[in-house]
Structure formats: C-alpha cells, structure tokens
C-alpha cells in the first residue's frame, strides 16, 4: 500500500484533486454466455490516483455510453469491500496487485502509462453472464448443501446457556469473514473452491452450536463443490494469497481433518 507520510493535500476552500494518469486497458468483452469473447483495448485519460479501480471503470463506461457503445458490464454493489459482489482479474491477479477487493483497490497502485488487462473470473462453475460479470451461484448451492445450523426461528435457547471459549469464537469469526467473492477460485490453478468451502466448514465447526451437523455438513459440502465442477485442491496456496479477507490455509487442513473424521464415522453425502 502506498501511504503518503506527509500531510493530506489540504487546500481548504479549493480543490486540489490530482488527476492526470493515462492508461491503456485491455478488457474482456463478451456479449453473453453463448458467444465467444475477446480482449478489446481502450484508453482512459485523466485518471486520479485517488479513484478506486471501479470508479476508473465508471469513467470508461460514461465515455462508452456517450459514444453510443455498450458499456463494460461488471459486478459491484457495496463498494466498501464487504458484499463480495465485485471481483476482476487484473493483470493476472485476482482483485489486482493488493490483497483487497477490487472496489477497494485504488489507482495509486498503478503508474501513469500502465497497460492493464482486465478479465472475468474463469471457472466453468462461474459462467460469464456478460463481459466481466459472472454467475457465482454455485457458492450458494454449496451453502445449501450444509453451510448452516438447523435452528428454526423461535426454538433457540437462552444465548448464555452455551458459553463459547473466546479463542474458538475468535477463530470462527476469522473464518466467517469470507465474503464469497470467488477470488480463491479465480486464483487457484485448479479452479478449486476449497478455501470458500473450508471457511464455512471451519466457522461452523468451531462453534459448539455447529457440532450436531458437523459430519454431514462437511461430506455434503465437499460433494457439492465437486458436483458443481470446481477443481480439486492440491494445496497450492494461491487462493489464500488472493483472498481479500485473508482466509488462511489452515481452514483447508481443518476441512480435510473433519472430512476424514466424518467418513470414518460413516457419514455419506445425502442422496
């Protein structure tokens, strides 16, 4: 991260907006899932280093709309790094050169005159909808397979009836911060969703509330990710490195551990 050590560029009353970066973008354009796509080159000028990457794309799109061209489709919503909706492959790295979400990547991470390649996540379970937007609902189906605790509304016991050791609760929280962005899949050379699945298995598996369904959860979620067509994990570690929430490789080990235990205990995927 580039943090300026000197004071903020403060000019009360006036604007001191720094602008002036010119960039060459090569963007993946694909009209819909049925047609082939290709990289198309665009130029954007007068980009401020304080813009977020998506604001830079907004500038491009306003240009394209005014020219009567089709603007580049890309997913985004919260623009503050928490909803997990955004996600682009930027110069070959998921979410770009910093370990953050695409919406929180700022143009000061680039240099004037840079050329930037922008592609969608690539994995067959994430089909392209248009341009840079992909369908990530395979993740929801992995959750459907067991990423929950069955507790119908109104049946819960008093919250303090089950104390949870702080250490476990904190570790569960770390895993639970996964935002489902899919960068792990995008970065993994195998196109594996292991980190995503492992984060949920770890979160719920560390809580006492998650114990009754622990075995079934892990076998079903793992079976589902295979069924969706994700690759298998061979412990390469690109995923964790690309993960904007820093989900650790330890979660994968934990999933494997749970799976072994579950299979030994006789748990099998629901059919």
């Amino acid at each position: 991260m580039t943090i300026t050590e000197q004071g903020p560029h403060s000019t009360p009353g006036g604007t001191s907006e720094k602008r002036g970066m010119n960039l060459t973008l090569r963007v993946w354009r694909q009209k819909d899932p049925s047609v082939k796509g290709k990289m198309v080159t665009y130029k954007v000028t007068d980009i401020s280093p304080d813009m977020s990457f998506l604001e830079m794309l907004d500038v491009l799109n306003e240009q394209l709309i005014m020219q009567g061209d089709d603007p580049v489709a890309f997913d985004h919503d919260c623009r503050e790094g928490i909803c997990g909706m955004c996600g682009l492959m930027i110069n070959g790295e998921a979410h770009g050169p910093q370990q953050t979400t695409t919406c929180q990547l700022h143009m000061r991470s680039f240099e004037d005159g840079d050329s930037i390649d922008i592609e969608p996540w690539r994995a067959s379970p994430f089909p392209v909808i248009k341009d840079l937007a992909v369908d990530r609902r395979a993740f929801d189906r992995i959750i459907q397979a067991g990423g929950y605790i069955s507790v119908p509304t109104g049946t819960a016991p008093e919250a303090h009836s089950t104390p949870v050791p702080k250490k476990d609760s904190d570790a569960a929280f770390d895993a639970a911060t996964c935002i489902g962005c899919g960068a792990c899949v995008a970065a993994c050379p195998n196109g594996s969703s292991m980190l995503f699945t492992a984060a949920k298995v770890t979160h719920l598996g560390l809580m006492p509330q998650g114990q009754p369904e622990r075995n079934d959860r892990v076998v079903n979620m793992v079976a589902q990710q295979d069924l969706e067509g994700f690759g298998g994990c061979t412990n390469i570690g690109e995923c964790s490195h690309a993960c904007p929430k820093g989900i650790s490789m330890e979660t994968i080990s934990r999933l494997n551990h749970d799976l072994l235990g579950a299979l030994r205990a006789g748990a099998r995927p629901k059919s």
């Binding site: 507790v151 049946t155 919250a159 050791p165 639970a176 979160h203 509330q209």
Partner: peptide, 17 residues
C-alpha cells in the same frame, strides 16, 4: 438467542460469555 444458536460468532469475553 436466535443468532447465537445459528452460530453467529459474536464477540465474547474470556469466560466464554
């Protein structure tokens, strides 16, 4: 109560509460 039962990892104290 409902959220704790669902496994929401609320902040806890060392005593586990």
């Amino acid at each position: 109560d409902q959220c704790v039962a669902q496994g929401v990892p609320f902040a806890r104290e060392y005593g586990g509460l």
